[in-house]
């Protein structure tokens, strides 16, 4: 039997905008995935730790505060340091295109901007993890 896809949705830093994170968490749950939401104000250390503890396949970071160029690389670095760089890091928020390009080059998964249909995120994750349901 195929294992269920497990996703951690996380809000790093001080950013309090949680509308997007909550909508995405719910849409992924409705799509049949197992979803864990960290809640607000998580440090990169807390997120990397939670991702490993919860044995997730992917971490979705939601950042609307402009701190994405610090927080995405830091979460990826910590996962690597802990030997967990098989966990996919993807995300969304207010992120200029140029910054997206830089983050993709660092190995970040897809970044979804405002106006993304939630189905697009579901499809992306299904495609990334064909051996999960």
């Amino acid at each position: 039997m195929k294992k269920k896809l497990r996703i951690l949705i996380a809000k790093p830093g001080l950013d309090g905008h949680d509308r997007g994170a909550k909508v995405v968490a719910r849409a992924l749950r409705d799509a049949g995935f197992e979803v864990i939401y960290t809640g607000l104000h998580q440090t990169p250390e807390m997120i990397a730790e939670a991702a490993i503890q919860e044995d997730v396949d992917a971490v979705g970071l939601s950042i609307l505060s402009g701190a994405h160029m610090t927080l995405f690389p830091e979460v990826m670095r910590l996962l690597k340091e802990k030997g967990a760089d098989d966990i996919l890091v993807f995300g969304g928020g207010i992120i200029p295109k140029e910054d997206m390009e830089v983050l993709y080059r660092m190995g970040c998964g897809q970044l979804f901007g405002p106006g993304t249909p939630t189905q697009e995120i579901v499809d992306y994750l299904k495609e990334k993890f064909p051996d999960r349901v």
């Binding site: 830093g13 001080l14 950013d15 505060s65 402009g66 701190a67 927080l71």
Partner: peptide
């Protein structure tokens, strides 16, 4: 320390 990356950003 919690301000890392956020100073003057939004």
């Amino acid at each position: 320390p919690m301000a890392r990356g956020e100073v003057g950003r939004c």
